[in-house]
């Protein structure tokens, strides 16, 4: 058993455990904090996959911006706890069965039937250096320039939409 595999297995255990913690904790704030830890773990996975820029984006955008937004809304609405609902009591065991079928089928199809060849070698320091990020940036601004610009418009539309949706109407109800 080599060191890379030990690192992978440790991180994988943390990722799955925090995912389950997010799923099962009663308090929504705890769920959000579990999810932050999950995102950080995935960021470390990106580092082992020689994607340093994506790793930093993951930390700053997901763990930083998005989860802070989640925590703000949870605390703003005061909905840490919701009373357990009695509607559709059969849904929970059925969901468990369906989830088991989903994971079994996807593992069978992706790994059992057509295993992807190749091994992931954790990069040494040279691959995680600035060269990779420079290459990524030049590709982003040449070959993928149009999607990049479309993304900026998407962000603008989302920003305007969020502001319009949450704006208090003057003289309207509430």
């Amino acid at each position: 058993m080599n060191v890379d595999l030990i690192v992978f297995l440790g991180l994988a255990v943390v990722a799955v455990a925090t995912g389950l913690g997010m799923l099962l904790s009663r308090n929504a704030v705890y769920s959000a904090l579990f999810l932050v830890l999950n995102f950080m773990t995935v960021a470390v996975f990106y580092l082992t996959l020689a994607a340093p820029f994506i790793a930093i984006s993951q930390v700053s955008v997901y763990a930083g911006a998005i989860m802070v937004l989640f925590l703000f809304v949870i605390m703003l609405l005061g909905t840490e706890h919701l009373a357990p609902s009695k509607a559709l009591p059969w849904q929970r065991p059925l969901a468990g069965v369906l989830a088991f079928i989903l994971v079994a089928e996807s593992v069978y199809l992706l790994v059992g039937r057509a295993p992807a060849a190749g091994d992931i070698v954790v990069p040494d320091a040279a691959v995680n250096a600035m060269d990779a990020i420079r290459e990524l940036g030049s590709l982003l601004f040449t070959q993928y320039l149009l999607p990049f610009e479309a993304t900026s418009i998407l962000l603008l539309v989302a920003m305007v939409g969020a502001i319009v949706l949450t704006k208090q109407q003057k003289g309207g109800r509430k």
Partner: peptide
């Protein structure tokens, strides 16, 4: 060295 299939299983 980790087989890429392990990453795919984790992702699933």
């Amino acid at each position: 060295m980790v087989p890429v299939n392990y990453y795919i299983i984790l992702s699933a």
